[in-house]
Amino acid sequence: MAISLKINGEKHQVDADPDTPLLWAIRDHLDMTGTKFGCGIASCGACTVHLNGQAVRSCVLPISVIGDQEITTIEGLSSREGKAIQAAWDELAVVQCGYCQSGQIMSATALLENNASPNDADIDAALSGNICRCSTYTRIRAAVKHASQTISVKEV
């Protein structure tokens, strides 16, 4: 039985078992591969997407429980905060291998959308669920702050 999902503003029908995690529906059924598989137990954050604007781990979210909630993946990231985060990532050359960075960017964007000027403790709390084995953490921290500043400058 096909299950309906609303991803990046578009309706999709996914013909998969109801227990299929959203991650695999996105990747294997809808061919959007920006969202990554890292652990399968919501422990590394590589699979982070937004569900109604909140960062969630798609690897443990069965497609049967989502209903008509809005899903945003890295491919559909279009908010002001999201664009500022991506630009800051590029400007500060955050990325190394890059595999975790879709998830990092989704978590960082959700943070900025909820908290326009996060401090170090806020960043620790919001991003400690996203592992980066290249340890780009120092640059991620700096880039979140940089993105926050670029948005506030534009607002002034």
């Binding site: 591969t33 993946t73 890295i74 491919e75 595999y99 960075q101 879709s102």
Partner: peptide, 10 residues
């Protein structure tokens, strides 16, 4: 690597 378009083996 910041917009999800880079292709890894996965």
């Amino acid at each position: 690597k910041t917009d999800g378009t880079a292709i890894f083996t996965q």
